[in-house]
Amino acid sequence: MIVVTDLYKSFGKLEVLKGITTRIKEKEVVVVIGPSGSGKSTFLRCLNLLEQPTAGKIVIDHFAVTDPQTNINKLRAEVGMVFQHFNLFPHKTVLENIVLAPMKVRGLSREEAEERAYSLLHKIGLAEKAAVYPSSLSGGQQQRAAIARALAMQPRVMLFDEPTSALDPEMVGEVLTVMQDLAEEGMTMVVVTHEMGFAREVGDRVLFMDEGQILEEGSPESIFQNAQHERTRVFLSKIL
């Protein structure tokens, strides 16, 4: 479903990604872990071209992401993204946040878009918050609403960029539960996170990134129980 070949990304002289190659299958949940500055977020942001790769190839479904001929907006409509800081639109209610893109990008009527939005809001337990502005929601509620906003486009892939890092500890669980449900429904997901419990329980595969490269990858058990690299072990011992 996603094929990444020899991906490089530099910011000026700083080389952040140094040759990433991996394949992600349909319905697979891939968890990307690694120390800060290892390039995990940059890798994720390259997948929907929020960062323009310096070199390399990305193919998602039939979209040659890195081909300049590809319509970026069409690609992005198929790739949902959830951000660390939610990035809900503060001037729009929760409902308006969710219906905007389906109406403007997919061309849905307001009725269709609202119907879809309400069913998502029910699913994530925020139906009664449809008419309020994001500023009156808790962090956990905001992040769930942001997930609903991304899902309303009915994407084929969901990217999560440290979705729980900005949350108070007691709100992490509610967001992870929504993500777990999504994984169980068969969504293809790439998740950058420090939540090792989530990686272990929900992840099909774990990528350990360090200094712009995938140092090690494998099933959660193989990474958490017998990592091959010293640096993976050091990182895990610090974080667990």
Partner: peptide, 29 residues
């Protein structure tokens, strides 16, 4: 905040739609 246009673009909105529906209404305020 840059996150606003990133969120809009990540949903597939064009630069013009992002400016019109997300950035300008907040900037005008």
């Amino acid at each position: 905040d840059r996150g606003q246009s990133e969120a809009a673009r990540s949903l597939g909105m064009t630069r013009a739609q992002t400016m019109r529906y997300i950035i300008l209404p907040q900037a005008l305020k």
